[in-house]
Amino acid sequence: MTRVVERPAGAGLLLRVVPPGLYAGRARVLVERAYLVNRRAWLSLVSGFFEPVFFLLSLGYGFGQLVSAVDGVPYPAYVAPALLAASAMNGAIFDATYNLFFKIKYARLYEAVLATPMGPVDIAVGEACWALLRGGLYSAGFLAVMLGFGLVWSPWAVLVLPACLLVALAFAAVGMAATTFMRSWQDFDLVQLLVLPLFLFSTTFYPLSVYPAWLRAVVQWTPLYHAIELTRALTTGHVGWGLLGHVGYFAVMAALGVAVAARRLGRLLTA
């Protein structure tokens, strides 16, 4: 017997909050699907891990020989946590924008999914979980590489992984919300227009002190700056209560993103 109307026993908070029809509590099925797809394309999955490592080797060690230390930190140890945060952002944005758009518009995957008891919220939650799982794996891999190169200086670094997941969640949520407004591939160049400057200018490669005062104020408002502050503090051990401020920044960002994405996605997919 297939149960169609009833919800699974032990329904969670989300099940009680979200109107029936939008959520069947089976988001994990989409995660399983993603696993099946990626098991076949594992090479592409694994290769994603190498990109930040290449950047670390090139920028940290090659490029880094041009400068000795930044803010008293040797260049590789300075740039590595920033690359970690940036790759969490890049992965999340890529999944939440390009991949999502492709699946909505071309693969018609969700059309088929929505013809079953699954609802749009199952889709949103399922896709987000998979993206986080994958992002978490990459972050863990990169962290291991940093450890191998002696770039992790503090036990606080164990918190880098959850920090990266939070950062990824926040970027994914906002990215997903933005995707629901996209009309064609042309709009994705705007995503590039936002992501690339974030990657380049958020104190990833050089300290904030390079900027004039007004520009410093602007950079300090941007999300990747907060992510980098967080990861850099944790791996170098400069930890203080102030870090909670960064955490709060991403919590708010994630909440706003999820709220908009869930509403818009529901309307878009069931329209």
């Binding site: 041009l66 400068v67 705007l190 227009l193 690339l196 380049l200 490669f205 300290p207």
Partner: peptide
């Protein structure tokens, strides 16, 4: 009709790289 889709990556990206790497990072070199 579609120049907008690649304009940023084609024209703006290298400029951003020059600003960040050349001038920003370069200030440390």
């Amino acid at each position: 009709r579609n120049w907008r889709a690649t304009a940023i990556t084609n024209f703006l990206q290298p400029v951003l790289f020059l600003l960040a790497m050349g001038l920003g990072f370069g200030s440390q070199v």
